[in-house]
Each structure stands twice: as structure tokens, then as C-alpha cells.
Design a protein around this nucleic acid. Structure first.
Lengths: 221, 221
DNA sequence: ACCTGAACACCGTTCAAGT
DNA sequence: ACCTGAACACCGTTCAAGT
């Protein structure tokens, strides 16, 4: 009986969390561009201007959405036997989490909030780096380098599925006239790399170059 | 006498290239957000709708701008003694070119045109990879991995100067409560990495893992 | 062929006004 | 304290009309 309260004048029951959740599902379902103050308001059955009272303007809304989504991402468990493996595992969590809800990631990226989006997972990575003996400025730089590469692969993946199949990113290059380019290379450029495995090998290389191999594993035996 | 033609009715002398150049300098000087059909038109001393006749709608305008700017970037010479060094040199050219005109890069990124922006330099990298003996799918994957990392560093650099000094990206992490985080790491997170040198070491690692060391240099002696 | 102004359908945001 | 409608200042885009 009370599952549908009138949602009219005088306390429509608009809690900020409800606004954020509806906004997030709206973005995930209909894309980042669908997020409009008017559209979100109609989704909530409320006047457009009510949103301003509860969550502020559009920038504040998006910031709160990204922070909230980032908290969910950090709930995943970090698996791995050595600190080095767990650093790589956190990198994979950022990558997989970003691609699982691409539209939210796209929204965060468009507003320069990618670092806020991955904030908690980056903190987790900092802890794993510490476990591996990487602290201070080395930890800061390692974190920065790893997350930069992860972010680059994420936007590469987002670009791939944004374009229609006939002129994907790869073929942008393939359509160029080639002065002496190997035909095998030229035809390969018309196809897409398998990004997940490319991500894995590349980030393992980067992580391995920044994080020392696990010594304590033997030290305790 | 004829240096300032009336620029009125009946052929105002609007050539597409002029439109693109004005649009590019507008973006570089006043930022990507300043690029508006109305604003650009007033900059050209022309009605807003004239732009549509010459360069099409906004998306076509931006695409042409990015392509044009990308051509300029590819004019820089590629220096280096070995193919491996030249691959890294091209990566540096993409990085430096993107940061030299950050607002254009931001515009390209916002419209998913980063790959178009770096198109010619990526083709140059493909040639250097071929010189190093990397062809076919290996070349495609190497190109993809390298440009992904380069792109990640670029957006990281763009984020850094977008934020005011008091809450830069780094301190986003530093402001978190730290459950057992090393104090040296915590305070280091409040400072910024030196991105150019971090870019250099990281990309050298990635390139070295994908491009075999130069053998022909000795082979010819 | 080229350029214009008016008009349309959107935005985000403010604010006085209601209860 | 919470919610509303009207209004403002912007957008991109279309199109009939001019020369």
C-alpha cells in the first residue's frame, strides 16, 4: 500500500542517495549523454529544480555519482600470492570495473574525474606497493605510472566500442596510403587487437619494472 | 588597400582552411569550451549559419580541426640511431605535441578523436616498428600498447594542470584516511610526480619489451 | 553559389513564490 | 525545510529568403 507514496508537494521523500542511484542507472542504461537535469528529474517524478536543493548543480551531481560508483568498485577482493601479483590484480580491477559500467566511466572521464573514480582502488594499490617494499616517492611514482597506463587502455577500449564496426579505430590507420608499409602490417592494422590480453602483458611488464620480485616468500621459509 | 575586403554579403571570402585556423587558435587561446558556433562566427565576422555551409556541423568542424592539427604534429623530424630509439622518439613526439597545444588535445579527447589526432605519427611509428623487424599483428599490437600508454600519460598530464593547485590529482589520494599507510608514502602522495621523466622511463620499458634490440647495426660491420 | 535572420528544440541555473 | 513554475541566458541546427 505504501510502496508508492504520492510523491507530491511537501517532502517528496527525495534522498540524495536515491537521486544518485537513479542517475547512475540512467547513465548505465541510456548512456552518459542521457544525463540531463530535466531528464533525471522526470525519472524521479519531481520538478527539475528540486535536484539542486538535494545534490547541488550538475557538476556536484556528477562528482557524487562518480564517488559513489568508485566505492562499489573497491569492494572487490584482491587476489594474488605475492604483493607484485596483487598490484597487478588491483590494476586489473580498475580495468574491469571501468569497463563493466563503461558509460559511468565515460561520464567520469568527460568531467576529469577518472582519478576520483579509481580513488579507493588506487589506495588499495598503494597498500600493496608498500607490502612489496615500495614506499615514499617511489610508491607515488609507481602508482602514477601504473594508473596512467591503465587509464590509457581504458580509454582505448571505450573508443573501440564507440565507433561503428566499419570504421573502427584501427582502420583509421589502415585507410592511410602507405609509403612502403609491409602489406602484412597494413592488413593487420585493419583488424583490432585483443585488448584484454594486450592489457595483461603490457601491465605485467610495467608492474614488474616498478615492483621488486617477492623476496619475503622465501625469507620466511 | 585590398587587405581588408568588406567581408559582407556575396562571397565573404570564407575558405574552409581559414575557418579551421581561426577555430584552432580560438581553442588554443581561450580553451576548448570557448569553441561555439556563434563565437567562432563572430570571430570570423560572419553569420553563425555560414559556418555550416563551409565546414558542416560542429562534429565535422571539430574532426577537420583535429585532422589539420594532427598533420602539423607529424612534421617534426624523428631522431634516433636505432629503430628502437626512433620508436621511442615517435612516442615522445606524440606526448610533446599533445601537451604543446593542450586545449586542442582536450578537444580531440572529448570527441573521441585522439586516434585521429595522432594518426600520422602512429603511421610513422608503424614504419619504425617495421624497420625494427616488427610487422603484421605484432606491429599492430605493439602500436596499440604503446599508444595506449602514451595516451594515458597525456590525459594524466591534462588532468594535472586542470585542477587548482590546492587539490591536485595527487592530493585526492592524500586526503583519504590511511589505514596503515606508510607516512612517507602518505606525504609523497600529496606531491606531484615529475611526469616527463616518468613518461620517459615507463615508455622506454614498454617499448623495449615490444621492440627487439637493434641487431642490424652490428650485422653490417 | 554563397550568406543571412528568424525560429525551433534543447540545455543549466536562478529565484521568488508556495506550503 | 522542501518543492514548484516561470524566466534567463545560453546552446546546435534548420530553413526559407535574399543576392
Amino acid at each position: 500500500m505504501d510502496e508508492t507514496r504520492p510523491r507530491t508537494n511537501r517532502h517528496a521523500g527525495l534522498e540524495p542517495d536515491e537521486v544518485l542511484d537513479r542517475a547512475l542507472t540512467l547513465v548505465e542504461v541510456e548512456g552518459a549523454d542521457a544525463l540531463t537535469m530535466r531528464r533525471l528529474a522526470s525519472e524521479l517524478g519531481v520538478a527539475t529544480t528540486s535536484i539542486y536543493w538535494h545534490v547541488g548543480n550538475r557538476e556536484q551531481l556528477v562528482t557524487a555519482m562518480v564517488r559513489r560508483h568508485g566505492l562499489r568498485l573497491a569492494e572487490a577482493p584482491i587476489v594474488g600470492d605475492t604483493p607484485r601479483q596483487r598490484v597487478l590484480a588491483v590494476a586489473r580491477l580498475i580495468w574491469e570495473g571501468a569497463l563493466a559500467d563503461r558509460e559511468v566511466t565515460r561520464l567520469a572521464s568527460a568531467h576529469g574525474l577518472s582519478s576520483l573514480h579509481a580513488q579507493r582502488l588506487e589506495l588499495a594499490m598503494a597498500r600493496e606497493l608498500q607490502e612489496a617494499g615500495v614506499v615514499g616517492e617511489s610508491a607515488r611514482d609507481a602508482l602514477r605510472a601504473i594508473t596512467a597506463c591503465v587509464g590509457g587502455f581504458i580509454i582505448a577500449a571505450l573508443l573501440d566500442d564507440a565507433l561503428p564496426t566499419d570504421h573502427r579505430r584501427s582502420s583509421v590507420l589502415a585507410h592511410l596510403e602507405d609509403p612502403g608499409l609491409d602489406p602484412a602490417t597494413h592488413s593487420a592494422l585493419a583488424t583490432n587487437s585483443h585488448l584484454p590480453s594486450l592489457f595483461d602483458t603490457t601491465l605485467r611488464t610495467v608492474v614488474d619494472s616498478l615492483v621488486p620480485a617477492d623476496l619475503s616468500a622465501n625469507a620466511y621459509l
